[in-house]
Nucleic acid binder design. Structure first.
Lengths: 206, 206
DNA sequence: TGTTAATGACTGTCCAGTCAGTCATATTGA
DNA sequence: TCAATATGACTGACTGGACAGTCATTAACA
């Protein structure tokens, strides 16, 4: 049996290839059901090679889910510097970024993986809470606080429970990864409807 | 080595005990990481005994998640027969039931398990979509449709995306099972705030 | 005494992680 | 320019442990 042709690579590149393959495998079958050989095969290399780049399966997983800390927060966080931008615009931008950068990419599976495997990897959950959730909520509190003060919110109490604004985004990901195959959900419509519900109608004009 | 004392049981009862033990184990560690011996030990029996009641691990899991089809839908479904009840009351009742019967019981873990392991068990996902999601959304469509017609909704378009009403409930479960240990979320407040946001204020009195 | 629930040692399989050996490429020196 | 040599990325057969599922034996009850 002839050995497959060997191909040398820039380690940096190899690493990225392995991570990409791992994302596909973990997203498809979860942590436990993914075999290191699957990841290797998908990356077009032998099993041993994976271990030249990652010490073990758990670390491969953790590196993967930690590396997704997307630039979304940075962009939205930057927007709130400008106090004149209406809160609705900021939240709408957040949803758009979320849709384009997470929901419509492979990253949506990562989010499901964190929900799914989180309790098995407290390190990951803690990282996400600290780096993503806390920061995201802080930004939302600022934005919604201003909106409440300006009368942009139909119900000012929303500013006290920013998790409520994240709920529709969470729903779109859960639906997309579980039920989309059985019944379509228009994520854009869901998010837009929510925006139209929490914010007072613009201008009252037409 | 003395064998542990054997205790005979009504098969019906044994079955229930095993399911209870399995729920605790699966909720704690997920499907893959749960050993059949763990389930047996937790139920106070030997491993072989589990196999007298369930053919294999997968079937045990499926029976478990399928058997949670709670009476919530029945109760709420019954309420919509009476057209005079305000939509807000119906949705509020739905949230209360959800909170008492799912969020504050072991079942909250079942919900997380379905999110987590769903893609590995299409049978389970399909069952949930067909038996729970579809029926729940149908009820919500009726209730929200009426509400829109009566002017009870701040934004009538909500009636077209009933998933939006499920989103806050989903958020409370996800938060409770992942982040509650790091940061408390007042589920009641979140749900109440949402109700106050989508429904027009009552009477305008006070 | 016969019937059946219950037991737990056992078996076969699967897979994470290892490591001795291989080969593509780079470097050296003529 | 072209061997000769060195380097380390890459390979995949192998090992050790874990665990799902089995079944011969044992104990409980009628």
């Amino acid at each position: 049996m002839p050995e497959k042709k060997r191909e040398r690579r820039d380690p940096e590149l190899r690493r990225a290839e392995i991570l990409k393959a791992a994302l596909a495998c973990f997203a498809e079958r979860g942590f436990a059901a993914t075999r290191m050989e699957d990841v290797a095969a998908r990356a077009g290399i032998a099993k041993g090679t994976v271990y030249l780049h990652f010490p073990d399966k758990e670390r491969l997983f953790i590196e993967l889910v930690s590396g997704i800390a997307s630039p979304i927060l940075g962009e939205v966080g930057g927007m709130i510097q400008n106090e004149t931008i209406p809160a609705r615009t900021v939240v709408s931008m957040f949803y758009s970024l979320f849709k384009r950068e997470v929901l419509e990419t492979e990253r949506r599976h990562m989010l499901r993986l964190i929900l799914a495997e989180g309790p098995m990897f407290p390190v990951v959950t803690e990282f996400y809470h600290r780096e993503i959730i806390t920061k995201g909520l802080a930004i939302l509190r600022v934005v919604l606080g201003r909106a409440a003060a300006r009368g942009e919110l139909r119900n000012p109490a929303v500013a006290e429970v920013p998790q409520l604004v994240m709920a529709p985004a969470l729903m779109t990901v859960v639906w997309a990864t579980l039920f989309e195959g059985y019944e379509h959900l228009d994520a854009q419509k869901l998010l837009d409807t929510f925006l139209n519900t929490i914010f007072v109608p613009e201008g009252g004009a037409k």
